[in-house]
Design a protein around this nucleic acid. Structure first.
Length: 475
RNA sequence: GUCCCGUUCGUCUAGUGGUUAGGACUCAGGAUUUUCAUUCCUGCAACAGGAGUUCAAUUCUCCUACGGGAUACCA
Protein backbone atom coordinates (compact mmCIF):
# COMPACT_ATOMS: atom_id res chain seq x y z
CA UNK A 1 0.00 0.00 0.00
CA UNK A 2 1.42 3.34 -0.96
CA UNK A 3 1.27 5.94 1.80
CA UNK A 4 -1.56 8.37 1.66
CA UNK A 5 -1.09 11.72 -0.01
CA UNK A 6 -1.33 14.47 2.56
CA UNK A 7 -0.74 18.09 1.63
CA UNK A 8 -1.08 21.20 3.71
CA UNK A 9 -1.60 24.90 3.28
CA UNK A 10 0.10 26.72 6.12
CA UNK A 11 -0.64 30.43 6.05
CA UNK A 12 0.27 32.83 8.76
CA UNK A 13 -2.72 34.84 9.91
CA UNK A 14 -1.52 38.33 9.12
CA UNK A 15 -4.81 39.68 7.87
CA UNK A 16 -6.12 38.26 4.63
CA UNK A 17 -5.68 35.48 2.11
CA UNK A 18 -3.09 36.58 -0.42
CA UNK A 19 -3.92 35.59 -3.97
CA UNK A 20 -0.65 33.67 -4.12
CA UNK A 21 -1.74 31.82 -1.01
CA UNK A 22 -5.05 31.05 -2.64
CA UNK A 23 -3.21 29.53 -5.57
CA UNK A 24 -1.05 27.41 -3.27
CA UNK A 25 -4.17 26.27 -1.45
CA UNK A 26 -5.84 25.52 -4.77
CA UNK A 27 -2.92 23.38 -5.93
CA UNK A 28 -3.00 21.58 -2.59
CA UNK A 29 -6.69 21.00 -3.03
CA UNK A 30 -6.38 19.88 -6.64
CA UNK A 31 -3.61 17.45 -5.84
CA UNK A 32 -5.42 16.00 -2.84
CA UNK A 33 -8.62 15.62 -4.86
CA UNK A 34 -6.80 14.10 -7.77
CA UNK A 35 -4.98 11.53 -5.68
CA UNK A 36 -7.68 10.82 -3.15
CA UNK A 37 -5.46 12.37 -0.50
CA UNK A 38 -6.11 14.80 2.29
CA UNK A 39 -5.75 18.55 2.31
CA UNK A 40 -4.84 20.05 5.66
CA UNK A 41 -5.13 23.66 6.76
CA UNK A 42 -2.64 24.60 9.43
CA UNK A 43 -2.35 28.05 10.93
CA UNK A 44 1.22 29.22 11.41
CA UNK A 45 0.64 31.71 14.17
CA UNK A 46 4.00 31.54 15.87
CA UNK A 47 4.74 35.22 15.53
CA UNK A 48 2.87 36.91 18.33
CA UNK A 49 3.98 40.32 17.13
CA UNK A 50 2.20 39.88 13.85
CA UNK A 51 -1.05 38.53 15.16
CA UNK A 52 -4.07 40.15 13.54
CA UNK A 53 -7.52 39.96 15.05
CA UNK A 54 -9.98 38.05 12.91
CA UNK A 55 -7.38 37.00 10.38
CA UNK A 56 -8.01 33.30 10.78
CA UNK A 57 -11.75 33.68 10.31
CA UNK A 58 -11.10 35.83 7.28
CA UNK A 59 -8.74 33.26 5.82
CA UNK A 60 -11.15 30.40 6.32
CA UNK A 61 -13.94 32.48 4.93
CA UNK A 62 -12.02 33.25 1.75
CA UNK A 63 -11.20 29.59 1.31
CA UNK A 64 -14.82 28.70 1.82
CA UNK A 65 -16.34 31.20 -0.58
CA UNK A 66 -13.91 30.28 -3.31
CA UNK A 67 -14.65 26.61 -2.78
CA UNK A 68 -11.15 25.47 -1.89
CA UNK A 69 -12.20 22.94 0.71
CA UNK A 70 -9.83 21.44 3.24
CA UNK A 71 -10.28 18.10 4.95
CA UNK A 72 -8.58 18.80 8.25
CA UNK A 73 -7.94 21.99 10.12
CA UNK A 74 -9.51 24.69 12.26
CA UNK A 75 -13.31 24.44 12.59
CA UNK A 76 -13.10 21.07 10.96
CA UNK A 77 -10.90 19.04 13.24
CA UNK A 78 -8.96 15.93 12.37
CA UNK A 79 -6.71 13.34 13.93
CA UNK A 80 -3.54 15.37 13.71
CA UNK A 81 -4.50 18.51 15.65
CA UNK A 82 -4.25 20.98 17.08
CA UNK A 83 -4.01 22.83 13.79
CA UNK A 84 -2.78 26.05 15.31
CA UNK A 85 0.93 26.18 15.91
CA UNK A 86 0.46 28.45 18.90
CA UNK A 87 -1.21 25.47 20.58
CA UNK A 88 1.66 23.13 19.86
CA UNK A 89 4.52 24.87 21.61
CA UNK A 90 5.21 22.01 24.02
CA UNK A 91 5.76 19.72 21.05
CA UNK A 92 8.36 22.03 19.56
CA UNK A 93 10.13 22.43 22.87
CA UNK A 94 10.38 18.68 23.20
CA UNK A 95 11.85 18.26 19.76
CA UNK A 96 14.26 21.11 20.09
CA UNK A 97 15.65 19.37 23.18
CA UNK A 98 16.29 16.36 21.01
CA UNK A 99 18.12 18.55 18.56
CA UNK A 100 20.28 19.97 21.33
CA UNK A 101 21.06 16.51 22.62
CA UNK A 102 22.07 15.46 19.17
CA UNK A 103 24.41 18.42 18.90
CA UNK A 104 22.33 19.91 16.12
CA UNK A 105 21.16 22.94 18.05
CA UNK A 106 22.51 25.20 20.77
CA UNK A 107 21.43 28.09 22.93
CA UNK A 108 22.49 31.55 21.87
CA UNK A 109 22.62 34.49 24.24
CA UNK A 110 23.36 37.22 21.76
CA UNK A 111 21.18 40.27 22.13
CA UNK A 112 19.77 42.04 19.14
CA UNK A 113 22.37 44.76 19.76
CA UNK A 114 25.12 42.17 19.61
CA UNK A 115 23.78 40.87 16.33
CA UNK A 116 23.45 44.31 14.87
CA UNK A 117 27.02 45.12 15.79
CA UNK A 118 28.18 41.87 14.27
CA UNK A 119 26.39 42.63 11.05
CA UNK A 120 27.78 46.10 10.80
CA UNK A 121 31.22 44.72 11.27
CA UNK A 122 30.70 42.12 8.59
CA UNK A 123 29.43 44.74 6.22
CA UNK A 124 32.43 46.99 6.79
CA UNK A 125 34.85 44.18 6.17
CA UNK A 126 32.97 42.86 3.18
CA UNK A 127 32.12 39.53 4.76
CA UNK A 128 28.92 37.64 4.19
CA UNK A 129 26.20 38.81 6.48
CA UNK A 130 25.37 35.80 8.52
CA UNK A 131 25.35 34.73 12.13
CA UNK A 132 28.95 33.86 12.92
CA UNK A 133 28.18 31.04 15.30
CA UNK A 134 29.93 32.62 18.27
CA UNK A 135 27.61 31.00 20.82
CA UNK A 136 28.53 27.55 19.52
CA UNK A 137 31.66 27.94 21.65
CA UNK A 138 29.87 28.35 24.95
CA UNK A 139 30.26 25.12 26.87
CA UNK A 140 27.17 23.22 27.85
CA UNK A 141 27.51 23.64 31.59
CA UNK A 142 27.90 27.40 31.31
CA UNK A 143 24.93 27.55 28.99
CA UNK A 144 22.80 25.54 31.37
CA UNK A 145 23.76 27.81 34.22
CA UNK A 146 22.92 30.96 32.28
CA UNK A 147 19.55 29.56 31.23
CA UNK A 148 18.84 28.59 34.81
CA UNK A 149 19.58 32.15 35.84
CA UNK A 150 16.92 33.30 33.47
CA UNK A 151 19.16 34.86 30.89
CA UNK A 152 17.29 35.65 27.70
CA UNK A 153 18.29 33.32 24.90
CA UNK A 154 17.23 31.64 21.69
CA UNK A 155 17.95 28.19 20.32
CA UNK A 156 19.81 28.05 17.05
CA UNK A 157 20.24 25.29 14.53
CA UNK A 158 23.81 24.05 14.20
CA UNK A 159 24.12 23.54 10.48
CA UNK A 160 27.15 21.85 8.91
CA UNK A 161 29.94 24.27 8.13
CA UNK A 162 31.24 22.86 4.92
CA UNK A 163 30.30 20.67 2.00
CA UNK A 164 27.07 21.08 0.15
CA UNK A 165 23.56 19.78 0.12
CA UNK A 166 21.49 18.70 -2.83
CA UNK A 167 17.86 17.80 -2.91
CA UNK A 168 15.21 17.16 -5.49
CA UNK A 169 12.43 19.60 -5.99
CA UNK A 170 9.50 18.29 -7.97
CA UNK A 171 9.38 21.44 -10.09
CA UNK A 172 13.06 22.29 -10.37
CA UNK A 173 14.67 18.89 -10.16
CA UNK A 174 18.06 18.91 -8.47
CA UNK A 175 18.97 21.96 -6.40
CA UNK A 176 22.30 22.39 -4.62
CA UNK A 177 23.39 24.74 -1.85
CA UNK A 178 26.79 25.11 -0.19
CA UNK A 179 26.43 24.70 3.57
CA UNK A 180 28.66 27.63 4.32
CA UNK A 181 25.99 29.90 2.90
CA UNK A 182 23.43 28.74 5.37
CA UNK A 183 22.78 30.51 8.62
CA UNK A 184 22.48 29.02 12.08
CA UNK A 185 18.79 29.73 11.97
CA UNK A 186 16.90 30.58 15.14
CA UNK A 187 14.58 27.72 16.03
CA UNK A 188 13.11 28.94 19.31
CA UNK A 189 12.71 32.65 19.87
CA UNK A 190 13.35 34.27 23.21
CA UNK A 191 9.61 34.38 23.82
CA UNK A 192 9.57 30.60 23.72
CA UNK A 193 7.75 30.35 20.42
CA UNK A 194 9.29 28.43 17.58
CA UNK A 195 10.15 29.98 14.26
CA UNK A 196 8.58 28.75 11.08
CA UNK A 197 11.60 26.60 10.29
CA UNK A 198 11.30 24.39 13.32
CA UNK A 199 7.52 24.38 13.49
CA UNK A 200 6.93 23.46 9.89
CA UNK A 201 9.36 20.56 10.03
CA UNK A 202 7.94 19.17 13.25
CA UNK A 203 4.36 19.64 12.11
CA UNK A 204 4.81 18.36 8.60
CA UNK A 205 6.33 15.25 10.06
CA UNK A 206 3.79 14.74 12.82
CA UNK A 207 0.92 15.45 10.47
CA UNK A 208 2.40 12.99 8.00
CA UNK A 209 2.57 15.48 5.19
CA UNK A 210 3.73 13.80 2.00
CA UNK A 211 4.22 16.85 -0.22
CA UNK A 212 5.17 20.34 0.81
CA UNK A 213 3.70 22.71 -1.74
CA UNK A 214 4.81 26.30 -1.13
CA UNK A 215 6.12 29.41 -2.85
CA UNK A 216 9.56 29.62 -4.36
CA UNK A 217 10.62 32.07 -1.66
CA UNK A 218 11.10 29.00 0.54
CA UNK A 219 13.50 27.25 -1.76
CA UNK A 220 16.57 28.65 -0.10
CA UNK A 221 15.51 27.65 3.40
CA UNK A 222 14.81 24.09 2.39
CA UNK A 223 18.36 22.89 3.26
CA UNK A 224 17.81 23.83 6.91
CA UNK A 225 14.58 21.91 6.91
CA UNK A 226 16.16 18.86 5.32
CA UNK A 227 18.96 18.99 7.85
CA UNK A 228 16.46 18.75 10.67
CA UNK A 229 14.66 15.84 9.07
CA UNK A 230 17.99 14.12 8.84
CA UNK A 231 18.94 14.70 12.46
CA UNK A 232 15.55 13.50 13.61
CA UNK A 233 15.83 10.49 11.37
CA UNK A 234 12.62 11.39 9.58
CA UNK A 235 11.82 10.93 5.97
CA UNK A 236 11.45 14.37 4.36
CA UNK A 237 8.37 15.13 2.28
CA UNK A 238 8.54 15.80 -1.44
CA UNK A 239 9.27 19.43 -2.15
CA UNK A 240 7.15 21.36 -4.60
CA UNK A 241 8.25 24.97 -4.90
CA UNK A 242 5.84 27.05 -6.90
CA UNK A 243 6.89 29.93 -9.14
CA UNK A 244 5.93 33.32 -7.75
CA UNK A 245 3.00 35.43 -8.89
CA UNK A 246 4.33 38.79 -9.98
CA UNK A 247 3.37 42.45 -10.28
CA UNK A 248 3.37 43.93 -13.79
CA UNK A 249 6.95 45.07 -13.09
CA UNK A 250 7.87 41.44 -12.36
CA UNK A 251 8.52 41.87 -8.66
CA UNK A 252 6.76 39.61 -6.16
CA UNK A 253 3.06 40.45 -6.15
CA UNK A 254 2.50 43.09 -3.53
CA UNK A 255 -0.21 45.24 -2.12
CA UNK A 256 1.44 48.43 -3.29
CA UNK A 257 0.70 47.62 -6.89
CA UNK A 258 -2.94 46.69 -6.63
CA UNK A 259 -5.19 44.15 -5.03
CA UNK A 260 -3.65 41.04 -3.55
CA UNK A 261 -6.31 39.86 -1.15
CA UNK A 262 -8.79 37.25 -2.30
CA UNK A 263 -11.60 39.19 -0.69
CA UNK A 264 -10.69 42.30 -2.71
CA UNK A 265 -11.29 40.40 -5.92
CA UNK A 266 -14.54 38.99 -4.62
CA UNK A 267 -15.64 42.46 -3.58
CA UNK A 268 -14.88 43.74 -7.03
CA UNK A 269 -17.28 41.23 -8.45
CA UNK A 270 -15.02 38.50 -9.71
CA UNK A 271 -16.62 35.10 -9.55
CA UNK A 272 -14.89 32.43 -7.47
CA UNK A 273 -15.16 30.08 -10.45
CA UNK A 274 -13.30 32.52 -12.69
CA UNK A 275 -10.77 33.50 -10.06
CA UNK A 276 -9.84 29.87 -9.43
CA UNK A 277 -9.65 29.10 -13.12
CA UNK A 278 -7.45 32.11 -13.69
CA UNK A 279 -4.95 31.58 -10.88
CA UNK A 280 -4.77 27.87 -11.60
CA UNK A 281 -3.32 28.83 -14.95
CA UNK A 282 -0.77 31.17 -13.43
CA UNK A 283 2.24 28.93 -13.24
CA UNK A 284 0.60 25.76 -14.41
CA UNK A 285 -0.92 24.72 -17.69
CA UNK A 286 -1.97 21.41 -19.14
CA UNK A 287 -0.95 20.68 -22.70
CA UNK A 288 -3.28 22.03 -25.32
CA UNK A 289 -5.13 25.25 -25.89
CA UNK A 290 -8.01 24.96 -23.47
CA UNK A 291 -8.42 27.97 -21.18
CA UNK A 292 -11.71 27.56 -19.41
CA UNK A 293 -11.70 24.85 -16.77
CA UNK A 294 -14.34 23.99 -14.24
CA UNK A 295 -13.10 22.82 -10.87
CA UNK A 296 -13.64 19.14 -11.70
CA UNK A 297 -11.79 19.66 -14.96
CA UNK A 298 -8.92 21.28 -13.11
CA UNK A 299 -8.74 18.33 -10.77
CA UNK A 300 -8.68 15.96 -13.67
CA UNK A 301 -5.98 17.83 -15.56
CA UNK A 302 -3.75 18.83 -12.67
CA UNK A 303 -0.24 17.52 -12.37
CA UNK A 304 3.01 18.75 -10.80
CA UNK A 305 4.83 17.92 -13.98
CA UNK A 306 3.31 20.86 -15.78
CA UNK A 307 4.06 23.54 -13.22
CA UNK A 308 6.29 26.13 -14.79
CA UNK A 309 9.54 27.30 -13.32
CA UNK A 310 9.32 31.01 -13.98
CA UNK A 311 7.16 33.59 -12.27
CA UNK A 312 3.87 34.70 -13.80
CA UNK A 313 2.60 38.25 -14.02
CA UNK A 314 -0.92 38.70 -12.75
CA UNK A 315 -2.76 40.23 -15.69
CA UNK A 316 -5.99 41.75 -14.47
CA UNK A 317 -7.22 42.30 -18.04
CA UNK A 318 -7.19 38.62 -18.73
CA UNK A 319 -8.93 37.93 -15.44
CA UNK A 320 -11.67 40.35 -16.50
CA UNK A 321 -12.05 38.56 -19.78
CA UNK A 322 -12.24 35.20 -18.09
CA UNK A 323 -14.74 36.53 -15.58
CA UNK A 324 -16.96 37.81 -18.37
CA UNK A 325 -16.88 34.36 -19.93
CA UNK A 326 -18.11 32.86 -16.69
CA UNK A 327 -20.74 35.56 -16.30
CA UNK A 328 -22.17 34.70 -19.69
CA UNK A 329 -21.99 30.96 -19.47
CA UNK A 330 -22.68 29.96 -15.89
CA UNK A 331 -26.16 29.02 -14.82
CA UNK A 332 -28.33 32.15 -14.59
CA UNK A 333 -29.57 31.28 -11.14
CA UNK A 334 -26.01 31.08 -9.89
CA UNK A 335 -25.12 34.44 -11.38
CA UNK A 336 -28.30 35.95 -10.04
CA UNK A 337 -27.53 34.74 -6.54
CA UNK A 338 -24.01 36.05 -6.68
CA UNK A 339 -25.09 39.40 -8.03
CA UNK A 340 -27.60 40.01 -5.24
CA UNK A 341 -25.22 41.71 -2.79
CA UNK A 342 -24.18 44.11 -5.52
CA UNK A 343 -27.76 44.84 -6.53
CA UNK A 344 -28.85 45.32 -2.98
CA UNK A 345 -26.09 47.80 -2.42
CA UNK A 346 -27.28 49.73 -5.46
CA UNK A 347 -30.77 49.97 -4.00
CA UNK A 348 -32.56 47.27 -5.95
CA UNK A 349 -35.46 45.43 -4.41
CA UNK A 350 -34.32 41.81 -4.42
CA UNK A 351 -37.93 40.65 -4.40
CA UNK A 352 -38.59 42.31 -7.73
CA UNK A 353 -39.77 39.43 -9.91
CA UNK A 354 -38.33 41.08 -12.95
CA UNK A 355 -34.84 41.33 -11.51
CA UNK A 356 -33.49 38.00 -12.70
CA UNK A 357 -34.40 38.94 -16.25
CA UNK A 358 -32.49 42.17 -15.87
CA UNK A 359 -29.45 40.33 -14.54
CA UNK A 360 -29.62 38.00 -17.50
CA UNK A 361 -29.54 41.01 -19.76
CA UNK A 362 -26.72 42.74 -17.91
CA UNK A 363 -24.43 39.77 -17.48
CA UNK A 364 -23.71 39.54 -21.18
CA UNK A 365 -22.53 43.12 -21.26
CA UNK A 366 -20.23 43.39 -18.23
CA UNK A 367 -17.05 41.78 -16.98
CA UNK A 368 -17.69 41.82 -13.23
CA UNK A 369 -20.67 41.43 -10.93
CA UNK A 370 -20.02 44.89 -9.58
CA UNK A 371 -20.71 46.37 -13.01
CA UNK A 372 -24.18 44.87 -13.23
CA UNK A 373 -26.02 47.59 -11.26
CA UNK A 374 -24.24 50.22 -13.34
CA UNK A 375 -25.36 48.46 -16.51
CA UNK A 376 -28.93 48.40 -15.21
CA UNK A 377 -28.98 51.97 -14.04
CA UNK A 378 -30.83 53.38 -17.03
CA UNK A 379 -33.52 50.73 -16.63
CA UNK A 380 -34.02 51.60 -12.99
CA UNK A 381 -33.84 55.36 -13.03
CA UNK A 382 -35.43 57.82 -15.38
CA UNK A 383 -32.82 58.78 -17.94
CA UNK A 384 -31.04 62.09 -17.79
CA UNK A 385 -30.34 63.53 -21.20
CA UNK A 386 -27.44 65.41 -22.65
CA UNK A 387 -28.18 68.58 -24.56
CA UNK A 388 -27.60 66.79 -27.82
CA UNK A 389 -29.97 63.98 -26.96
CA UNK A 390 -32.53 66.43 -25.68
CA UNK A 391 -32.57 68.02 -29.14
CA UNK A 392 -33.31 64.71 -30.76
CA UNK A 393 -36.14 64.09 -28.34
CA UNK A 394 -37.70 67.44 -29.06
CA UNK A 395 -37.60 67.31 -32.82
CA UNK A 396 -40.82 66.82 -34.72
CA UNK A 397 -40.24 63.34 -35.97
CA UNK A 398 -39.35 62.05 -32.51
CA UNK A 399 -42.43 63.65 -31.08
CA UNK A 400 -44.53 61.99 -33.77
CA UNK A 401 -43.07 58.61 -32.85
CA UNK A 402 -43.78 59.10 -29.16
CA UNK A 403 -47.34 60.19 -29.77
CA UNK A 404 -47.94 57.28 -32.07
CA UNK A 405 -46.60 54.80 -29.54
CA UNK A 406 -48.58 56.28 -26.73
CA UNK A 407 -51.80 55.53 -28.51
CA UNK A 408 -50.73 52.02 -29.45
CA UNK A 409 -49.33 50.74 -26.21
CA UNK A 410 -52.11 49.25 -24.23
CA UNK A 411 -52.06 45.60 -25.06
CA UNK A 412 -49.77 42.68 -24.57
CA UNK A 413 -46.26 43.82 -25.35
CA UNK A 414 -44.60 40.68 -26.63
CA UNK A 415 -41.75 40.70 -29.08
CA UNK A 416 -43.93 40.15 -32.14
CA UNK A 417 -46.21 42.95 -31.15
CA UNK A 418 -43.33 45.37 -30.73
CA UNK A 419 -41.72 44.37 -33.99
CA UNK A 420 -45.00 44.88 -35.73
CA UNK A 421 -45.44 48.18 -34.00
CA UNK A 422 -42.02 49.31 -35.19
CA UNK A 423 -43.02 48.36 -38.73
CA UNK A 424 -46.31 50.09 -38.39
CA UNK A 425 -44.69 53.23 -37.02
CA UNK A 426 -42.33 53.27 -39.92
CA UNK A 427 -44.99 52.99 -42.59
CA UNK A 428 -47.59 55.17 -40.91
CA UNK A 429 -45.23 58.04 -40.11
CA UNK A 430 -42.81 57.44 -42.93
CA UNK A 431 -39.86 57.40 -40.54
CA UNK A 432 -37.08 54.87 -40.61
CA UNK A 433 -33.54 54.03 -39.54
CA UNK A 434 -31.91 56.36 -37.07
CA UNK A 435 -34.94 58.64 -36.98
CA UNK A 436 -37.05 55.79 -35.76
CA UNK A 437 -34.72 53.92 -33.46
CA UNK A 438 -32.87 56.76 -31.80
CA UNK A 439 -35.90 58.45 -30.25
CA UNK A 440 -37.28 55.13 -29.07
CA UNK A 441 -34.03 54.04 -27.53
CA UNK A 442 -33.51 57.43 -25.98
CA UNK A 443 -36.92 57.27 -24.42
CA UNK A 444 -36.55 53.76 -23.11
CA UNK A 445 -32.85 53.58 -22.37
CA UNK A 446 -31.47 57.11 -22.23
CA UNK A 447 -28.98 56.60 -25.00
CA UNK A 448 -29.30 56.30 -28.79
CA UNK A 449 -27.13 53.21 -28.56
CA UNK A 450 -28.05 50.11 -26.68
CA UNK A 451 -30.16 46.97 -26.71
CA UNK A 452 -32.90 46.12 -29.18
CA UNK A 453 -36.22 47.83 -28.65
CA UNK A 454 -38.34 44.69 -28.00
CA UNK A 455 -35.87 43.63 -25.35
CA UNK A 456 -36.01 47.04 -23.71
CA UNK A 457 -39.77 46.94 -23.67
CA UNK A 458 -39.72 43.51 -22.16
CA UNK A 459 -37.25 44.55 -19.47
CA UNK A 460 -39.08 47.75 -18.57
CA UNK A 461 -42.63 46.48 -18.63
CA UNK A 462 -45.68 48.18 -20.05
CA UNK A 463 -46.22 50.78 -17.34
CA UNK A 464 -42.67 52.01 -17.38
CA UNK A 465 -42.57 52.11 -21.18
CA UNK A 466 -45.70 54.17 -21.26
CA UNK A 467 -44.45 56.42 -18.51
CA UNK A 468 -41.12 57.06 -20.19
CA UNK A 469 -42.63 57.80 -23.56
CA UNK A 470 -45.41 59.98 -22.21
CA UNK A 471 -43.03 62.08 -20.17
CA UNK A 472 -41.16 63.09 -23.30
CA UNK A 473 -44.16 64.31 -25.23
CA UNK A 474 -44.20 68.09 -25.38
CA UNK A 475 -47.46 69.72 -24.47
C1' G B 1 27.85 41.74 -2.01
C1' U B 2 26.88 36.34 -1.66
C1' C B 3 23.92 31.99 -2.68
C1' C B 4 19.78 29.89 -5.30
C1' C B 5 16.20 29.87 -9.20
C1' G B 6 14.67 31.47 -13.79
C1' U B 7 14.44 33.64 -19.34
C1' U B 8 9.16 31.60 -26.21
C1' C B 9 4.86 37.70 -28.79
C1' G B 10 3.52 43.58 -24.04
C1' U B 11 1.03 39.54 -20.70
C1' C B 12 -0.48 34.11 -19.68
C1' U B 13 1.36 30.09 -22.28
C1' A B 14 1.72 25.47 -26.16
C1' G B 15 5.58 23.25 -28.70
C1' U B 16 9.83 20.62 -31.29
C1' G B 17 16.98 18.32 -32.76
C1' G B 18 14.48 19.79 -39.14
C1' U B 19 7.32 23.58 -37.69
C1' U B 20 4.88 29.05 -42.06
C1' A B 21 7.01 28.50 -33.73
C1' G B 22 0.43 27.31 -32.14
C1' G B 23 -3.46 29.32 -28.73
C1' A B 24 -5.50 33.06 -25.25
C1' C B 25 -5.70 38.26 -23.26
C1' U B 26 -4.67 43.23 -24.98
C1' C B 27 -4.46 46.34 -29.40
C1' A B 28 -5.85 47.39 -34.78
C1' G B 29 -9.02 46.33 -39.00
C1' G B 30 -13.38 43.83 -40.92
C1' A B 31 -18.21 40.92 -40.96
C1' U B 32 -22.95 40.46 -38.41
C1' U B 33 -26.45 44.07 -35.76
C1' U B 34 -31.04 50.04 -37.15
C1' U B 35 -27.15 51.31 -33.04
C1' C B 36 -24.21 49.56 -28.59
C1' A B 37 -22.69 45.04 -26.48
C1' U B 38 -22.04 39.98 -27.77
C1' U B 39 -20.29 36.69 -31.54
C1' C B 40 -17.21 35.61 -35.76
C1' C B 41 -13.04 36.59 -39.16
C1' U B 42 -8.29 38.89 -40.23
C1' G B 43 -3.96 41.30 -38.67
C1' C B 44 0.28 43.17 -35.38
C1' A B 45 3.68 40.75 -32.22
C1' A B 46 8.25 36.11 -29.39
C1' C B 47 12.36 31.64 -29.00
C1' A B 48 17.70 37.37 -24.22
C1' G B 49 22.97 37.37 -26.33
C1' G B 50 27.53 34.59 -27.44
C1' A B 51 30.23 30.18 -27.97
C1' G B 52 30.07 24.81 -28.44
C1' U B 53 27.84 19.72 -29.85
C1' U B 54 25.33 18.39 -34.50
C1' C B 55 24.25 17.57 -41.40
C1' A B 56 20.70 20.64 -38.57
C1' A B 57 19.56 24.08 -32.77
C1' U B 58 14.27 27.89 -30.14
C1' U B 59 14.94 22.75 -28.38
C1' C B 60 21.22 19.77 -25.71
C1' U B 61 25.97 21.94 -23.01
C1' C B 62 28.77 26.10 -21.27
C1' C B 63 29.46 31.34 -20.60
C1' U B 64 27.44 36.27 -20.34
C1' A B 65 23.47 39.52 -19.66
C1' C B 66 19.01 40.47 -17.55
C1' G B 67 15.09 39.35 -14.03
C1' G B 68 13.43 37.39 -9.51
C1' G B 69 13.95 35.09 -4.68
C1' A B 70 16.73 34.35 -0.18
C1' U B 71 20.13 36.38 2.96
C1' A B 72 15.32 38.17 10.40
C1' C B 73 14.23 36.17 17.51
C1' C B 74 8.52 37.19 9.72
C1' A B 75 6.16 33.63 7.63
Amino acid sequence: MSPQIRVRFAPSPTGYLHIGGLRTALYDFLYAQKTGGKFILRIEDTDQARYVEGAVENLINSLQTTGVKYDEGPQKGGDYGPYFQSQRTDIYLKYVQELIEKEAAYPCFCTSEDLEKMKENQKENGFDQRYDGRCRKINKEDAKERIKNGESHVIRLKVPQDGEISFYDVVRDKVTFPWNMIDDQVLIKSDGFPTYHLANVVDDHSMEISHVIRGEEWLSSTPKHIFMYKVFGWKPPKWVHLPLILNPDRTKLSKRQGDVATEDFLKKGFLPEALLNFIALLGWHPSGNKEIFSLPELIKAFSFKRISKSGAVFDIEKLKWMNSQYLKNLDLKNIFEQSKPFLEKAGWDLNDKNLIKLVDFARSRVSTLAEIPEELKSLKETPVYSEENQKIIENDNSQAVFKFWKTKIDTDLNETFINNLIQETSTELNIKGKNLYFPLRLALYGSPHGPEIPLLVELLGKDEVLKRISSLIKA
